[in-house]
Amino acid sequence: MKYKLIKIIITVFMFIVGIIFLLPFIWMLSASLKPEIEVFAYPIQWLPSEWRWGNYVEVWSGQFPLYYWNSIKVTVATTLISVIVSTMAAYGFSKIEFAGKNIIFLLVLATFMIPAQAILVPQFMLYMYLDLFDTHLGLILLNSFSVLGTFMLRQFFVGIHDDYIASAKIDGAGHFLIFRKVAIPLVLPAISTYGILRFIWTWNDYQGPLIFLRSDHLTTVQLGISKFSSMSGEFYSLIMAGTVSAILPLLIIFFIGQKYVIEGIAMGGVKG
């Protein structure tokens, strides 16, 4: 009984700490719905005196829908390709015996240490040469070959007992059939976890579009809000409406798939 009471007190205390932790988000949301003059009013008016939904209308009447559409295109394509490529590689590296497997895996793994910024210049040259600069295709390819995804999924494939595969082989199944009918169903939760994570990372990517896109009509949401915020100067309520619009879809996906995301992060982390 006494223990329960203490637990309730700690929960309430932690709830308050949690709210303080989230204040930047709450402030952002509240500022996005305020008339401009109230944004910096002090003491802070957490609830606007009048709800300015018009801020959102104004933001969305500009280029924002286009930026959104671009981001959706790039993110969905990147996620799909990356999941397929990583799952295949993970299967190959864990369930097939072939010459040079370990060396190639180590080599691929070693590239994980290379920071993306260290190879920006040669990548830029390469993209110019291949005509991939300032195209969505180039941006999609940039994030499609993920060592992290391969490594994460490989951990799960290693966990599948070889007997499953051996017995399928005795039945005369080739690797493609085994991959499709046996392996993928067994690691589907891991694949969806990686898919959600890749979606989040790609949606939030700013560096890629910053370096490899130039045209306004190709701009993604993250690049878009940074442009918007430097252009809109003093219209902070509008800028906040823009940032809320940029992170809201992800927060929704996160709330829906939070179990997958959090467990995936935890598993990948502890195992990695």
């Binding site: 988000f25 700013y206 809000i225 940074s226 915020s229 940029a246 992170i247 995301v261």
Partner: peptide
């Protein structure tokens, strides 16, 4: 976990 999900750009602007 919410800040981890949010984009760095949005966080920086806020």
């Amino acid at each position: 976990f919410m800040p981890y999900i949010s984009s760095v750009v949005a966080i920086a602007i806020v």
